[in-house]
């Protein structure tokens, strides 16, 4: 199954079931801006038969809205709740991509999720191959899910 399709399906499914929100996918991007401003990123490493990384990058407003839906409470700043929610979202996405890529889900193992946030930062994955970058939109704004995979 191709990676862009996996990411698209996994993201729509998780947003539908966990957040009761529609994440509308657009066509995969060839490149993305290096810099993220006032954003939150969730990252999870993938290891085993493949090595890689899955990340979700969201503007602060989208990250807070998702966290509010996730935790059923209002969130008005980027705090530990938001970081934990976005880390957990990256973890769930990586988990479903892993299952879609390997029949049994055993060939790939997940590391633990991390969250990055700040007023201006760059995130770059040092993979040998090009990553798949998928843009999504929801009512509160747009976000990206990207995944890099290479053979071990």
């Amino acid at each position: 199954m191709d990676l862009a399709k996996c990411i698209s399906e996994a993201t729509q499914e998780i947003f539908q079931s966990m957040l009761m929100t529609e994440a509308r996918p657009a066509a995969p991007l060839q490149t993305r801006s290096h810099k993220f401003t006032d954003s939150v990123s969730g990252l999870v490493g993938l290891a085993g038969n493949y090595r890689g990384m899955l990340a979700i990058h969201l503007p602060n407003a989208v990250a807070m809205s998702i966290t509010s839906k996730f935790l059923f409470m209002d969130v008005e700043e980027i705090n530990d709740d938001v970081k934990d929610a976005i880390g957990e979202l990256a973890n769930m996405l990586a988990g479903s991509v892993k299952t879609m890529l390997t029949d049994t889900g055993t060939g790939i193992k997940l590391a633990i999720p991390s969250a990055i946030c700040g007023s201006e930062y760059e995130v770059e994955c040092l993979a040998e191959s090009e990553g798949v970058i998928m843009p999504f939109s929801m009512d509160e704004g747009e976000f990206l899910v990207e995944c890099y995979l290479q053979n071990s």
């Binding site: 934990d84 991390s114 969250a115 700040g118 930062y121 770059e124």
Partner: peptide, 19 residues
């Protein structure tokens, strides 16, 4: 098993595990 490295850079950001 090891994943692949990612590099973050910037002026004021935080970067750490969640949970």
């Amino acid at each position: 098993a090891l994943a692949i490295p990612s590099v973050v850079c910037g002026q004021s950001y935080s970067c750490e595990a969640t949970g």
